[in-house]
Write a protein that binds this DNA or RNA. Structure first.
Length: 722
DNA sequence: TGCCCGCTAATTTTT
DNA sequence: TTAGCGGGCA
């Protein structure tokens, strides 16, 4: 086979990586340097030029999206489907291992995966059962603690608590939670990784098998690996196989959830003969944007070092807008977008508005709505996380595994069937005392006639219902089974009773669930289809909001923006205490992560970048005055263009920035300036927040102390300057 | 059992 | 400010 097409259209640095002799390699791939392309072409090269079997390759990513993209692009490049190769997320591959070796892993055959909500519920229950005051020991905190320890590879008995009462309590909760999971056959996300690691570590034969099988491991986003993922990869390494790690230490933004940026530093020491490559040519952004990004990130120490460059021209300067407050900021952003859209050469989806924290989206959304610009906010509840979907799936989980206590708790009284808290408490007490699942507790207590007749009947009916659903759905297809369970369980009727908009939405989602089941094609053919579907639902909880193809302005946090690119990007809220966030400003390590986050934000922009900050911002219901973010002053003055209101007298961003000619925006044809105090005869005193339009149609937004914000037509409002 | 009120806390999030 | 949660009440 002619392999030249694999190397065509690559630059020399990329080609060097793709065509390197099989060896251990660390590829430092800067933002927009064609990282995915290199990974995909490398795999193709291994298959076609080095004649590796697909069976001997494993490619690991962090998100399902990245895995899907890698596979898709590979198949496109090769022109055919690839069978037998392991491509997936750490969690997905760990799950696959555990399913294949459930006995060795000490799991029941039908173990189920807990998502974080399930996990938190279970932890809450565990804390209650330990009689620990959960006002002081919040389930959330315990969840954080437990996951943190698991990410470090630590079991309760390996944690040295000393006399620390906090740690002791947490370990107690961890221990009890682990027992509850084991009893119910439940595995949370962190547990998937830890179990898979322990499985490999403790089974020499099994490990040897996989070491020999996987001759080449490729890992994407290596800077995001946590301790246990790293340890697992190291276990799999052997004299005869190789690893290619691709990552960018400058884009490590997940330290707070256990990612160890050190892993990228350690790799060359831990793996023999690791060759380091750098991809620094950027195909995404203008020279100015890259210059700014490079300058910013240079304020971090401890870097592996990398400078992005491009063959593109400099492009436009970065616009820095000093807003009066967050409302003005939002209006500015939306107005800019509107201008571009009116010129007609841009689509809405060319624009991204990014911000540090989700709370910032509201004001921006309001401004977009006011201007009738369709937008889409990333994040939020995803399909398989919706309550009605999880209820339905909980029934199915119980069909597969009666001991699944999380599922049992979820639906034992949904829809209501007279099994209340009292009854549940008794079941829980029994379950704790006798070490049996809630289902078995239920069976045994019924046999012993523990309950009053009414409760007894309700419980018997519930058990019977589940048994019947199991029996009658055995021969059905996945979609039929789904449909049958949704109606048979009474969930359908339950949601039909809710006549509100919400209720209707829920019913639609249930229909959607059935059709998702109909379309489902499992990747792992080994597994019964229902088990595969349930795992799929948890591991890939689906898109946040669908309609990928519709033309929307994109809104998201900086974290969510990683890996994406947009022609025009607005970064909002560049203020001290917001970005860098107050919680990170004191700690130099966290501060550097904030800076990397800013670097990620800047490098999302292809053509034009806007940076905005507000001098005053309402935060937690309080007006706060913040200084512009230090990240702004770290950008080279020659890269930025400060946009300021004519009427405002303002300190320039930095001493250096004085050399830049401020561009003024005309505020008025009505003689009112943003920020000006005015008086209205019925609304009283207020402050001008923003304005739009010209002449007779000019409108101003005024915030009145007693009447809130109003839009007024300047010509009629008779505003007096106050 | 479900609704309402008051309290509290308040980055970032994929699996 | 607001969202989410727990407790109390009808």
């Amino acid at each position: 086979m002619d392999v030249s097409n694999i190397l065509n259209e690559l630059n020399s640095a990329q080609r060097e990586v793709v065509a390197a002799a099989p060896n251990n390699m660390l590829v430092l791939a800067g933002a927009g340097s064609g990282k995915t392309r290199v990974l995909v072409h490398r795999i193709a090269w291994l298959l076609e030029a080095e004649h590796y079997s697909p069976y001997s390759i494993m490619a690991v990513t962090f998100t399902n999206k990245a895995a899907a993209e890698m596979r898709g692009r590979l198949e496109q490049l090769l022109g055919h489907a690839v069978q037998g190769m392991w491509v997936g997320t750490f969690h997905g591959l760990a799950h696959r291992l555990l399913r294949a070796h459930w006995q060795d892993a000490g799991l029941p055959e039908h173990f189920q995966i807990l998502d974080s909500e399930d996990q938190q519920r279970l932890i809450r229950r565990v804390i209650k059962s330990l009689n620990i005051d959960d006002s002081q020991w919040s389930p959330k905190q315990a969840q954080w603690y437990i996951n943190g320890k698991k990410d470090e590879g630590l079991r309760p008995d390996q944690i040295k608590t000393g006399e620390d009462p906090y740690a002791r309590n947490m370990v107690r909760i961890y221990q009890a939670y682990e027992e509850a999971c084991q009893l119910a056959g439940l595995v949370d996300f962190a547990e998937l990784l830890l179990r898979a690691y322990e499985l490999c570590r403790d089974n020499a034969e099994l490990l040897a098998h996989y070491q020999q099988r996987f001759r080449y491991l490729l890992v994407d986003e290596f800077q995001d690996t946590n301790a246990i993922q790293y340890a697992w990869l190291c276990l799999l390494m052997h004299d005869h196989n190789h690893l290619m790690a691709v990552g960018d230490d400058d884009q490590s933004i997940y330290g707070w959830r256990g990612a160890k940026i050190e892993n990228i530093h350690r790799l060359s020491h831990d793996l023999p003969n690791t060759k380091v490559y750098r991809l620094e040519q950027n195909y995404r952004s203008t020279g100015t944007i890259l210059k700014a990004a490079n300058a910013l990130i240079q304020h971090n120490g401890e870097r592996l070092g990398k400078d992005l460059w491009t063959e593109h021209g400099d492009g436009e300067p970065i616009a820095v807008y000093a807003a009066f407050n967050e409302i003005d900021e939002a209006r500015f952003v939306v107005q800019q977008i509107k201008h571009f859209l009116e010129k007609g050469d841009r689509q809405r989806s060319d624009f991204a508005i990014v911000y540090r924290s989700n709370a910032q989206s509201r004001v921006l959304e309001e401004a977009l709505m006011q201007m009738s610009i369709p937008y889409r906010v990333y994040g939020g509840l995803r399909f398989f996380e919706r309550a009605e979907i999880k209820d339905s799936l909980a029934y199915l989980r119980l069909l597969v595994n009666r001991d699944d206590d999380a599922a049992f708790e979820r639906i034992v009284n949904v829809p209501t069937r007279g099994i209340g808290q009292q009854t549940l408490n008794k079941l829980r007490a029994y379950n704790r005392e006798h070490g049996v699942s809630l289902w078995r507790a239920c069976c045994e207590m019924i046999a012993a006639q523990t309950f009053a007749a009414r409760t007894q009947n309700a419980l018997v009916a519930f058990l019977k219902l589940i048994d019947e659903l199991t029996e009658n759905s055995r021969a059905l297809s996945l979609a039929e089974q789904m449909e049958y369970v949704i109606t048979g369980s009474g969930l359908q009727a339950h949601f039909e009773r809710d006549k509100s908009e919400k209720g209707r939405g829920r019913l639609e989602n249930l229909e959607e669930l059935v059709s998702a089941a109909r379309q489902f094609t499992p990747e792992d053919q080994e597994l019964p289809i229902l088990a595969a579907f349930l795992a799929h639902a948890v591991l890939e909880s689906g898109e946040g909001q669908a309609e990928e193809f519709t033309d929307y302005v994109q809104m998201m946090t900086l974290h969510a923006a990683k890996g994406l690119e947009f022609p025009i990007v607005f970064i909002c809220g560049l203020e001290e205490k917001l970005f860098p966030h107050e919680m990170s400003r004191q700690d130099p390590v966290k501060l550097e992560e904030e800076r990397r986050l800013c670097y990620v934000g800047i490098t999302r922009a292809m053509e034009k970048l806007y940076c905005c900050y507000a001098e005053r911002r309402s935060l937690h219901g309080r007006d706060e005055y913040h200084r512009p973010s230090r990240f702004l002053t770290e950008l080279p003055a020659e890269c930025i263009n400060e946009i300021r209101m004519r009427s405002q007298v303002r300190r320039p961003l930095s001493a250096r920035a004085t050399s830049v000619k401020p561009q003024t925006i005309s505020t008025d044809s009505h003689g009112l300036a943003i920020g000006q105090r005015v008086k209205h005869k019925s609304f009283g005193e207020g402050v001008v927040l923003s304005s739009e339009g010209q002449g007779a149609h000019a409108r101003v937004q005024v915030h009145f102390a007693e009447h809130g914000s109003k839009w007024l037509v300047a010509a009629y409002a008779n505003l007096e300057t106050a």
